[in-house]
Simulated assay, not measured.
Amino acid sequence: MTSGLTLDFAVERLPLAKPFRISGHVFTESEVVVVTLSDGTHSGRGEAAGVYYLGDDVAAMTAAIARVRDAVAGGITREALQALLPAGGARNAIDCALWELEARRSGIAVHELAGLPAPRPLRTTFTLGADDPDVMAAGAVGYAQARALKLKLTGDLALDIARVDAVRAARPECWIGVDANQGFAIGELDALVAALVAADVKLLEQPLARGREADLDGYRCPIPIAADESVLTLADVDGLAGRFDVVNIKLDKCGGLTEGLAMAHRARALGLGVMVGNMVSSSLAMAPAFIVGQLCDIVDLDGPIFLAADRTPSIEYRDGDAWCGEAIWGRG
């Protein structure tokens, strides 16, 4: 139980180095909410970007945090927070702040509090926003250290295939996955998948719209299919079996590290692969996701590379791997 706390929160605008395009959206900045919990001696922080396609924006997050401010300050456990707030950015920010506060109070590292071994560097994907094929190929070459690439697609079948082929030609040695961002219908998948197999693509993420999961019943895909928008919380995980192969966990979707860890363990129990992803955020948001990443097969923690400026200290990217030290978030 954490009692006698103060809860402060602030909205920050994180400009992107250049516009970032996915299916149906172009982003030029990331708005985040940063929560700070303090007992007067120790403090804990959490950053959330929310979930744009659910209307979970800064206004919604700050309103939710304001509603529960007194309840949190009066004393709350992470378990009680699960019932106090629904999944989403507001709960994520508070939950991560509670984890860091406990680590600093106890002197015990977050991974130990979570029952995990000492963290290791994680091979991360580097994401290429949807663009002209030659631009994406140049971007792939520009990610010289990358050992894994994730390509954003838009649902334009011919153009998307050209994008994949251009990147594969530019980086024949890289692991490649594609994120369709709900851009396709079931009838288009055979043609898309055939092209992906030919290009040695290893993952197809969220090809169909959220709500169309049943369309995958009976569909046999030679490439693992990952659920992103189709899996928000722990309650969604059981329904993925037989339709998806991989669960993409994002702390903004599920509402924090507490639920993210529970999702990873449940997915493993069901025989599903586990992936950790991120909204475009700073290293303060990557660090709790890095803890989840210790349980994952696929890691996508490249959000800070899209920012014009990250926080200091920041996540380290080296030889295709990501590393978050405790100076960024945690015991300190």
Rank of each mutant, 00 (worst) to 15 (best):
T77P: 09
E173G: 02
R91L: 05
D319E: 15
A10T: 13
R168N: 09
I176V: 13
K250Q: 06
Q145F: 01
K150M: 05
G75P: 15
S281H: 10
A309D: 13
I186W: 03
L261G: 00
P133W: 02
D217S: 12
L257Y: 14
L113N: 04
P207D: 09
I249Y: 06
S23E: 08
R220E: 15
A59P: 00
V58T: 15
S23H: 12
V246K: 00
V58R: 11
D160I: 08
T77H: 08
R69M: 05
L189W: 02
P133Q: 05
D132K: 12
P313K: 02
D39W: 05
I108P: 02
D217G: 03
G115S: 06
T127I: 07
P207I: 10
A73L: 13
L151I: 13
P15T: 14
F244M: 10
I176K: 01
E173F: 02
R331A: 10
L16S: 08
V164S: 06
A322S: 11
G115H: 04
A195L: 03
L284W: 02
E316P: 03
I65V: 10
R210L: 14
A269T: 14
A109N: 03
P133V: 02
L16R: 06
S230H: 10
L307M: 04
Q206E: 14
T41C: 08
D321F: 10
V58D: 12
A118P: 05
G273R: 13
E173C: 02
P15L: 12
R331K: 12
D8N: 13
A103C: 08
F306P: 01
V292Q: 02
L113G: 04
S282V: 07
M279P: 08
P288Q: 07
A137S: 00
D245P: 02
T2R: 10
G260A: 06
M275Q: 05
G40N: 10
I108F: 01
D321E: 13
N248C: 02
D56E: 12
A226P: 04
V193G: 07
A114M: 06
L81I: 07
P172M: 06
A49C: 15
S23G: 06
D190I: 14
V193L: 11
G330Q: 09
L284E: 07
P117A: 12
V231D: 01
F184C: 03
T77G: 14
G74R: 13
T62I: 11
V178N: 04
W329S: 04
D70H: 11
A90F: 00
K202P: 00
L81F: 02
A264E: 08
M286E: 10
E213H: 09
D132W: 09
M263L: 06
S106C: 04
E213I: 09
I65G: 00
D165W: 03
C296M: 04
V247H: 04
F126P: 00
S23A: 14
F290Q: 03
A194I: 09
D165P: 01
I315R: 01
L149P: 00
V197K: 13
A226N: 03
C96N: 15
F290V: 10
N248W: 01
A130C: 07
L159S: 14
L284V: 02
G74Q: 13
E102D: 14
L270F: 07
C324T: 06
